[in-house]
Design a protein around this nucleic acid. Structure first.
Lengths: 251, 251
DNA sequence: TGTACATACTCCTCCAAGGGGAGGGTCAAG
DNA sequence: CTTGACCCTCCCCTTGGAGGAGTATGTACA
């Protein structure tokens, strides 16, 4: 069974242009070329493509990938090395997000993002990063919690209800990440307590209401982005859990 | 006090080439140009450069930076937008790191990082039978029925099916990560094609069947772990999407 | 004033990883 | 036999500069 570029493209998700490119640079030559010059790919090529895509996800340059696919050994050390790089990048990203949040917060308070404070004449990116890291450390000490972990939470501006909601969401997100089923007793208990809290604070919310609400989130840009921003899949997990809770209550 | 390119370069850490570039694209024109064509920068330009470097650290494209520096207002919304992008990137990075760890772990156990683990692409009937046997054992234990009896194994077509399934799952996972709604037309089309493919390969699967199947996954350890292992939240997203598809078809 | 040497300029090409489109050939169905 | 979907090659464009060729200018020292 041989596949044309279009077929490979829709099987793998890469564009036809990319296949052309990979052929041109010799990274993925087709197994055959027809009379008319059509590229034809077999199973082996599809598999190779999967490997290529894997490494590409890890941000290896294509040349590196070609090398990796040639010499199998010592792959482990390269991967380990790559992990370090990725961790570094993640850290840097977190710092940057932090700074961004800071400047947004100060803008909200009407302060101009004043260059005197923020741009104290740093010479290069290196110093920049160090400075930002310092700022982050300061926040941690000053407020006693790690902003990176409780990313969405600005404790000061938050009233009790928001805090409860945030805590609830955090636990739901954690449950999702750790593979706890949406129908698990713990989750059901979590929802029950959450609804209980809501009802004690002037919101009349039945289990069915809650299920409907969470289902509504799935179609609403604002809420969907908010939830998914906290944890990929959270909106869907939440909805499934709420529905399960409502169904159980109905019995 | 006016500075030449070299001086600005060593003050700020950017290269002379970069200053040329920023001049050419109009991002940072010098305050004056000498008789001989030398670029001369004043304090204002140095400050502007600091701002540029700040945004560059946040990975804004230069065009965006130019826009930001022109119109100060609405800066907040742009920053907020940027925050979302960064969060997305962070999440993606986390997924990647996890994948990396997994494959490193499996390599340590002496397994080759084979396509079986990563891409569900099996090479031959042998491997297929092994894999199916494993799954079959699970099904038999858990639900008390046998599956190998009923299905003839044809490696060729199974490979195709596995490939299609993997491609489908990949795209679903990607859609989840990038925030595409479960009810989005693209997702619905994806499911339609997937079911179409299944039906062409001897599996009679209606939309309702598929929805039921994916809902079943949520309660089944084996499938849940498999899906969530690929992408956190995928099982729930898949179920929501399948249900939405079945509902739409019903109209 | 001559001579080094550093620094400046413009213009050109190149990098990764493809994207976009022109212009033209091929394939299968109706 | 035509239509529409698909395929090909060829060439230019993108980002954010890096590198170099060839040439002009600024400055320091003898």
């Amino acid at each position: 069974m041989l596949y044309t570029v279009k077929e490979v493209s829709s099987l793998s998700g890469v564009t036809v242009k990319t296949l052309h490119h990979y052929h041109k640079i010799g990274l993925l030559p087709p197994s055959a070329v027809s009379e008319a010059g059509y590229r034809l790919y077999g199973m082996k090529e599809l598999e190779r493509l999967q490997h290529i895509l894997f490494y590409r996800e890890l941000d290896f340059p294509l040349k590196e990938i070609a090398r990796l696919l040639k010499e199998d050994p010592e792959r482990h050390s390269i991967l380990a090395q790559q992990e370090e790089l990725l961790l570094l990048r993640k850290q840097r990203l977190e710092t940057i997000i932090q700074t961004l949040r800071q400047s947004m917060a100060s803008m909200e308070k009407g302060e101009t993002m004043n260059s005197k404070d923020m741009f104290n004449g740093f010479e290069n990116a290196q110093e920049w990063e160090e400075a930002l890291e310092e700022q982050n450390r300061h926040l941690k000490e000053a407020y006693g919690y790690d902003m990176l972990d409780s990313a969405e939470i600005d404790a000061q501006s938050m009233n009790e209800q928001a805090l409860e909601a945030a805590a609830f969401m955090n636990r739901m997100a954690e449950a999702l990440r750790t593979g706890i089923k949406h129908s698990d007793a713990e989750i059901q208990r979590l929802i029950r307590d959450h609804l209980h809290f809501m009802n004690k604070h002037g919101h009349t919310v039945t289990a069915a209401d809650f299920a409907a609400q969470t289902r509504f989130f799935l179609g609403d840009d604002f809420h969907l982005r908010m939830l998914e921003g906290q944890q990929t899949g959270l909106a869907y997990y939440l909805s499934a859990a709420a529905e399960s809770y409502a169904a159980a209550e109905h019995e």
